[in-house]
């Protein structure tokens, strides 16, 4: 309880100072939203022209795209303290010292250390496209689907959050941020926005068995859209998104707790 209140307090401080420059804040939010809207509009125009991709209609691809966008946007807001691009500054400049001096969980403090309100832009437009996609596709909603949707989003938030944590932890050794992690995070959102059949086998296998991205968006979407599975996996894999997400997150968390010991601070 105390932890939650402290987190909210830390977040509030940042929201307050970000709101001080209101025009700047609005423009930033707009530019963030604009980025994904433009890429979606391009995609929509092209899909219309080509009449879908790999047997998926515009609405179906939009559904994939929107789920990832929405989840990544949420994750980016909650986990931005662990964003390797930002976290690397802590290990480089030794500013983790000040968090370690306080009698509160370090993880909680890092969660509260960076909260970027303008990321709302991405969440907002992700929601918008999701609504649009759902209208376009005519999903047959059942109780199961309605209950499962938030779990899928939570699974992806944990998955991407885990990747952020992993990237942050690696900086304890490398000090510099590792760009390869961006391939998994930002590259992951791009990859997961399309049906997995379009990729070459080696790539799909990599994102099935090594980085289990396929279970987070593609398989749940097969369920929502009532599509058959071209890869003949057991039916149940459509429902493991939250478990996979949680697993990736927990693994990253254990790694993070281990990595903190290797924090070196900096020589003055």
């Amino acid at each position: 309880m105390k932890a939650l209140r402290l987190y909210l307090w830390l977040v509030l401080i940042q929201v307050r100072s970000q709101m001080q420059y209101r025009v700047g804040f609005l423009l930033e939010t707009l530019s963030v939203a604009l980025g994904s809207i433009i890429s979606f509009v391009t995609l929509a125009l092209v899909l219309q022209k080509f009449e879908g991709i790999a047997g998926w209609s515009l609405g179906e691809v939009a559904f994939l795209f929107a789920l990832v966008e929405l989840s990544f946007g949420l994750m980016d807001m909650i986990f931005s303290g662990f964003d390797p691009d930002y976290f690397a500054a802590h290990t480089r400049q030794g500013t983790l010292d000040q968090y370690l001096l306080r009698p509160v969980s370090l993880t909680l403090q890092i969660f509260g250390s960076q909260f970027i309100l303008r990321r709302l832009g991405r969440i907002f437009q992700g929601t918008l496209i999701l609504v649009y996609a759902v209208q376009l596709v005519n999903i047959e909603w059942t109780v199961g689907k309605i209950l499962y949707l938030p779990l899928v989003i939570a699974g992806m938030v944990l998955f991407f959050g885990g990747l952020f944590m992993l990237g942050a932890t690696i900086t304890f050794w490398t000090v510099e941020r590792i760009e390869a992690v961006n391939i998994l995070t930002y590259g992951g959102t791009e990859l997961m926005s399309y049906p997995m059949t379009i990729y070459q086998d080696w790539m799909r296998r990599f994102f099935t068995y090594i980085v289990p991205a396929i279970f987070l968006n593609y398989y749940p979407s097969l369920y929502f859209l009532d599509r058959p599975d071209p890869f003949n996996m057991p039916f149940v894999v459509r429902f493991i998104a939250p478990v996979v997400g949680l697993g990736v997150f927990l693994a990253a968390y254990v790694f993070w707790r281990f990595g903190v010991r290797y924090y070196q601070s900096t020589g003055s």
Binding site: V46, L47, F50, I53, A54, I178, E179, A180, N182, I183, G187, E190, L191, Y194, P195, T197, I198, Y199, Q200, M203
Partner: peptide
């Protein structure tokens, strides 16, 4: 690292093109 990222995104884009 930048080259690797650009190349990876290129692979994805090429896959999308082929599928389109």
């Amino acid at each position: 690292a930048g080259l690797a990222t650009n190349f990876y995104f290129g692979l994805l884009r090429a896959a999308v093109m082929a599928a389109l």
